[in-house]
């Protein structure tokens, strides 16, 4: 499952980021790294709003669909 199609309200862990190196660097600077805990807050067709490491971001489909998530046990 990617960040783009993760259900709203769910809490997930980042498993991998499949993107160009430059996008990966940008995402990691914002806290989206392997192992980070992500909460999906809301979504539109074009973008998704999520919280990671205490900050809230909106990421467009192109960026969000690069982030691979797994369900956390929580």
């Amino acid at each position: 499952m990617t960040l783009y199609d993760a259900p709203v309200g769910g809490c997930f862990r980042v498993v991998a980021i499949h993107s160009t190196p430059s996008l990966k660097l940008r995402l990691s600077a914002l806290g989206l790294t392997k192992g980070a805990q992500v909460t999906v807050l809301s979504r539109r067709r074009s973008a998704v709003v999520f919280r990671v490491r205490g900050a809230r971001y909106a990421a467009a489909k192109g960026a969000a669909s690069c982030v691979i998530l797994s369900q956390t046990g929580r």
Binding site: V49, R56, Y57
Partner: peptide, 10 residues
């Protein structure tokens, strides 16, 4: 441009 990523402050 690449996909948008923007912080939404409180």
């Amino acid at each position: 441009p690449g996909p948008m990523i923007i912080e939404l402050p409180d």
